[in-house]
Design a protein around this nucleic acid. Sequence first.
DNA 1: TACCGCTTGTGAACGCATGCACAAAGTCGG
DNA 2: CCGACTTTGTGCATGCGTTCACAAGCGGTA
Lengths: 248, 248
Amino acid sequence: MASQRGEGDLTTPLEPADRERARAIPEAAVARLAVYLRVLSGMADQGVTTVSSEELSTAAGVNSAKLRKDLSYIGSYGTRGVGYDVEVLVSHIERILGLTRKHSVAVVGIGNLGHALANYGGFPGRGFPVTALFDVDDDLVGVPVGGIPVNHIEDIQRVCAEREVSIGVIATPPPAAQGVCDRLVSAGVQCILNFAPVVLQVPDNVEVRKVDLAVEMQILSFHVARRADEAANDLVNGIGVDGMVIRP
Amino acid sequence: MASQRGEGDLTTPLEPADRERARAIPEAAVARLAVYLRVLSGMADQGVTTVSSEELSTAAGVNSAKLRKDLSYIGSYGTRGVGYDVEVLVSHIERILGLTRKHSVAVVGIGNLGHALANYGGFPGRGFPVTALFDVDDDLVGVPVGGIPVNHIEDIQRVCAEREVSIGVIATPPPAAQGVCDRLVSAGVQCILNFAPVVLQVPDNVEVRKVDLAVEMQILSFHVARRADEAANDLVNGIGVDGMVIRP
DNA sequence: TACCGCTTGTGAACGCATGCACAAAGTCGG
DNA sequence: CCGACTTTGTGCATGCGTTCACAAGCGGTA
Ligand SMILES: NC(=O)c1ccc[n+]([C@@H]2O[C@H](COP(=O)([O-])OP(=O)(O)OC[C@H]3O[C@@H](n4cnc5c(N)ncnc54)[C@H](O)[C@@H]3O)[C@@H](O)[C@H]2O)c1
Ligand SMILES: NC(=O)c1ccc[n+]([C@@H]2O[C@H](COP(=O)([O-])OP(=O)(O)OC[C@H]3O[C@@H](n4cnc5c(N)ncnc54)[C@H](O)[C@@H]3O)[C@@H](O)[C@H]2O)c1
């Protein structure tokens, strides 16, 4: 977290050059920057001080040209002939991703998934402390989960304001999701991570990301089906599963 | 599930026309087709028989031209001037996504997240029955979770073969993920859904999808940071938060 | 049957992302 | 100080995905 800017300071603008860069970073590159950051943090923990685009790209599972282009979106912090300083890169990616301040997280719907999320230690360590839990079930209200007592959903506006929640996680059953979303929005939350398999309607100033496991599995299913079909087709055409031509 | 093909039949090829289509469907469109399928299923449950591209695209949160193009990848099943028959569309999307057969799922790592996944009722209902659970912890082995007794990770090869597992879900701590992945692959699993924040190395014939919640949150963080910065910038330039020009 | 209004399906244009290939720029050994 | 070697940063071409816009096609109606 090497930054001259204080934590929690949302109003100090980035330097003009950075501002234009941040605006121009492609969405796909932002997702990859987060991955690079994780890999780099791991390297830093192991005492690695310098890394080349080739090494880092291999570790991150991407092509090295893409990696360099992604890094170029945030500036030129490499040294030709040497590579990148791990610490420097970490701090610049953190700055661009807005990780120089903590982002307080609220989880709504403390069922199976909500419990797992509330107990998960990986978020606070990455600058995303879970500071509020909500559920509609009176039996759950007041019970501490992962060290935080569950609040009633009715109190969402007050509690979110008090704890400066900036990310709301929806882990309720699908029918309740839109209602919860509306409440989060009216409580001033501008970022929502949705686990319920429903399409949420939100105003323009709110950013939603969804995690839909059934969709992920269906995509996998599509790929097996396609592969199985190609294999069957190849067999029909006289090509073995190993690629050898059986009937030329 | 309207299909003339029997369940579990992986070897019967699709019709030639369908095969070429399946090959050509863009990855992004596949993900959306899964969403359309969910929305359509909901409509079917509510007795809706016909839907226009406009209605369906609104419900799925996309632009109607994109929806029509996506549907055109799987064939022409609409009626001009009328719209699409919900049932027909559902069965065609299911066929293209390979959902005419069940895909047996194994979850590895029955901790916080593994428990939630094993207990989740949404997968079996969508053709993804969870049929095997694995953990390295002896205290967990034999304990039923969500109705299925946990097996020891050592038995993964035998059990996956017996239960014809086609999708492996990794919910172990990050350091164990690659090892678990290798075991799944050697057990013949070709589809992997990975929750551990690590980049998995797999052979070409294995499909991996990852769900990385920290990355999702960092993407959200990037967007708030950018927005906050734009707002601060606008204030400096004399534009109020409501878009009104304060100092013209 | 002929017309009208509506909705699909798609050609074409555009914009974004990816990957290549190389000049520029630095390090390091002699 | 120089020259060889390494690695970055990026201009450019290519391909993929999105969006527009409209002709083609269908049902309903008179
Ligand atoms: N469990 C999983 O592994 C999993 C996987 C994929 C998707 N999901 C999705 O995540 C969501 C949660 O799944 P789950 O298994 O934890 O469900 P769950 O039924 O175990 O928990 C849901 C919780 O939400 C609470 N709730 C209901 N209405 C609410 C409201 N209006 N406001 C606040 N809280 C409310 C309930 O009291 C309950 O505690 C569902 O939409 C599910 O489809 C879950
Ligand atoms: N819990 C969450 O909400 C959450 C959120 C995001 C990411 N994740 C990731 O998901 C993974 C699991 O998280 P969790 O909170 O459930 O962790 P956890 O520690 O609660 O559970 C991990 C389980 O994996 C088992 N395990 C360890 N090594 C194993 C091996 N070699 N083979 C089989 N099983 C093994 C452990 O015995 C334990 O039961 C982690 O990688 C975590 O980073 C979890």
